[in-house]
Nucleic acid binder design. Structure first.
Lengths: 332, 332
DNA sequence: TTGTATGCGTTATCAA
DNA sequence: TTGATAACGCATACAA
C-alpha cells in the first residue's frame, strides 16, 4: 500500500506538504501542489481514512437503525437518508433492528463500537418510559415513531393529525361504520396509539360511535396482518363500509383480504392507508393515503444529527412532518 | 474517552494484556481476565475500531452498491446481505448508484477511500465490454445482473432460464400472443437481454412467432413503465392474451395498466413477473412469478467476498441462483 | 512556504 | 503468563 510518506518521498517533499495538498489547505505553492498531485495520480495513492479518524475521532459515518430495510416505508426512508447524508459528506451504515426492543437497544449500544458520528433511530417498539436509553456520547435522532420527550431530537410523523384527516375523509365520502386495522400496542407511546387517537377523535368529532368490533389489532403490521384483519372482520359478521389502515402496507393486505371475500373497493368498502409508499398509486384500486413528506423527514433527521455534532449542548427539538391526504380510487 | 491504556493502568496490567482479553485470546490467567473485564465494565471502555483498522488494515465493512434501496427487489437484497454479513462479523455500508454507469464506476472507485474490505456490486448498467473495471485491490463480487466474464466472482440470476420457464407457463395456460414488457438495452450483456432470450426461446420451442409489436421496451423498468407499456399496446391496437414482465415491479405496473383499460386479469390477459417480491403474493390478482432464491444469492455473495479476502488468488467463480415458478391468480 | 517531532489507540513481536 | 516497544498512516503544533 502506498502511503502519504511514499508520496512525499517520490515528490521530494515532506509528508506535511502532501497532507496540505490532499486536504486542500492553503499555503502550498502552485508548482509543489502540481507535483504532488501528479505523484498521487501516478502512484495510485489513497488517503487512509482510518488514520485520519484515529486522529480526528470522527468517522464520517452516520448509523441508520430501522426495523428492516425491505419494508417499503423503511426502504424509502433509507434511500432518502443516504442521499441527504451524502450531500453533507457522510456515509450511512444501516442496522436492522428487527422491530424488537433488543435490536433497538443494541443499535444504540453498538453505535459506540461502530464509531458512528451519529445515529438516526427509527424505533418502533422501544418504550421511553420503560427503558433508559439516554446515551449522550453521540447525537441520536429519533425518527418517525416514538416520542422520547426531550431526551432526543425527534422528527415525528403527523400520526394523530394524519389519521384523523384520513378518517374524516372517509366520513366525508359517506362511510359510517369505519374499521381501524392496526398493531396491538395501543397503550404505549407509539405510532399505533397515536394513530388510533386520530381515528377515535375524528369519529367523536362527527358524532359517530367507535364500535370495538371494528378495531382489529395484530402483533405485527404486515401485508399478511392486513389481509387477516379482513378475514376476521368478515368472519365475525361485522358490518363496515370503510377501513383506516395503520400503514399502506397493511392497507395493501386489506385490499387483498377484501378481494378474498369478494368485497368491492371502493363500492362496498372504502379504504385509506398511511405513508404513501410508491406502490400505493399503482394498486388496483389505487390507494388513498396520508402522505407525510418523507424527503423532508430524512433531510431534517440528517440535519439534526449533523448540527448536534457541532453543538452537543443545543436543546433538543421536536419537528412534525407536514402531510397531505392523497385521494385516489380506493375512496372514490 | 477511556482508552485501552487507561484500562491497563486501572487494572494494574499492561495494554497488551487488556488487548488479549478484549480479543478473547488465550494466554491470560483467569483472575487477570476477570479483573480486566471488571475494569472495562466500570470504566465504560469501548474498543476503538479505527485504531484496530489502522493496524490491521481491515475495517470489517463490506460495501453493497445497488441502484436504489427503495426498489423492493434491492431492498430485499440489502436486507439479506446485511443479515448474512452480520453473521460473519461484517457490517454493510450501502451505496446507491442510481442505476447510472457513473454511479457504478464511482462505487468501485470509492471502495478504496471508504476502506471497504470488499464490495458487492449489483450493477445494472455497467458494461464489461466497454469499461475497464478490473480493480483488484479489494474483492468485488458482481451480483445478479451483469456478466463480467471471469474478471469477478459472479452470483447470477437465472435470467434466461427463468423467463423461459415463465413464458412456457403462459403457453401451457393457453396463451398464444404473449407480450414482453422490459427495458430497452436489448443488446448489452445484461438482465434485459438475457431475459428476452428466455422469452424468445420459449416461443420458438413451442412454434410461436415472436411478434415485434408485442415487445414493449422503455428506458426504465418501473411501476410507471409497466403501466405505460399496456397503454402503448392497447393504443397500438395490439392483440395479446399474455404478458411476461421483466420484473415484478413492472408487472405490478402492468396490472395497473390493464385495469386502466378494463382488461381483466387473468380472464383476458394472463401475467407473469420476475423476482417474487413480498408484495406479489398480495396483489389483486396475486402475481405468478419467477422466484429466484434471494437468500441463497445474498449468502453466496457474502461468502464469496469473505472467502476471497482470505484467498485473493482463488480463480473466480460463477453461480446461478436456483428458482421456482410460483403460480398464482394472474395466470389461473 | 516547508519541514520535524509527536501522538492518536491498537496490536505484533519479542523478551522477561 | 505478562510486559515493553515499535509500528500502522495521518494531522497538529511548532520550528525553520
Amino acid at each position: 500500500m502506498v502511503t502519504m510518506g511514499d508520496v512525499a518521498r517520490l515528490a521530494g517533499v515532506s509528508k506535511m506538504t502532501v497532507s496540505n495538498v490532499v486536504n486542500n489547505r492553503t499555503g502550498v505553492s502552485e508548482p509543489v501542489r502540481r507535483r504532488v498531485l501528479e505523484v498521487i495520480a501516478e502512484s495510485g495513492y489513497h488517503l487512509n481514512l482510518s488514520a485520519r479518524t484515529l486522529k480526528s475521532g470522527r468517522t464520517g459515518v452516520i448509523g441508520l437503525a430501522v426495523p428492516e430495510v425491505d419494508r417499503p416505508y423503511f426502504g424509502m426512508l433509507a434511500a432518502r437518508v443516504i442521499e441527504h447524508a451524502a450531500r453533507r459528506g457522510f456515509h450511512v451504515a444501516i442496522e436492522q433492528t428487527g422491530a424488537v426492543i433488543a435490536g433497538e437497544v443494541e443499535a444504540i449500544a453498538q453505535s459506540h463500537n461502530l464509531q458512528l458520528d451519529g445515529l438516526i433511530l427509527s424505533a418502533v417498539v422501544l418504550d421511553p418510559r420503560q427503558h433508559q436509553v439516554t446515551d449522550g456520547s453521540i447525537p441520536i435522532v429519533m425518527l418517525g415513531e416514538r416520542d422520547f420527550g426531550a431526551a432526543f431530537d425527534h422528527v415525528a410523523m403527523p400520526n394523530e393529525e394524519g389519521t384523523r384527516a384520513a378518517t374524516e375523509h372517509l366520513i366525508n365520502r359517506g362511510c359510517r361504520r369505519i374499521a381501524f386495522v392496526t398493531g396491538d400496542d395501543l397503550e404505549g407511546v407509539n405510532v399505533v396509539a397515536s394513530r388510533r387517537r386520530g381515528y377515535a377523535a375524528a369519529l367523536a368529532e362527527r358524532g359517530l360511535k367507535a364500535d370495538p368490533a371494528l378495531l382489529v389489532t395484530s402483533p405485527v403490521m404486515t401485508l399478511e396482518s392486513g389481509r387477516t384483519a379482513v378475514h376476521r372482520l368478515v368472519g365475525a359478521g361485522a358490518e363496515f363500509d370503510g377501513v383506516v389502515a395503520v400503514t399502506d402496507t397493511v392497507a395493501q393486505g386489506v385490499l387483498r383480504g377484501l378481494a378474498d371475500h369478494g368485497l368491492a373497493c371502493p363500492r362496498q368498502v372504502r379504504l385509506v392507508g398511511f405513508d404513501d409508499i410508491p406502490e400505493s398509486k399503482y394498486l388496483v384500486p389505487s390507494l388513498t393515503t396520508v402522505a407525510p413528506d418523507h424527503g423532508w423527514m430524512a433531510e431534517m433527521a440528517v440535519r439534526l444529527v449533523v448540527e448536534r455534532m457541532a453543538d452537543p449542548a443545543r436543546p433538543t427539538a421536536e419537528y412534525v412532518a407536514p402531510f397531505d391526504i392523497i385521494a385516489r380510487e380506493s375512496t372514490r
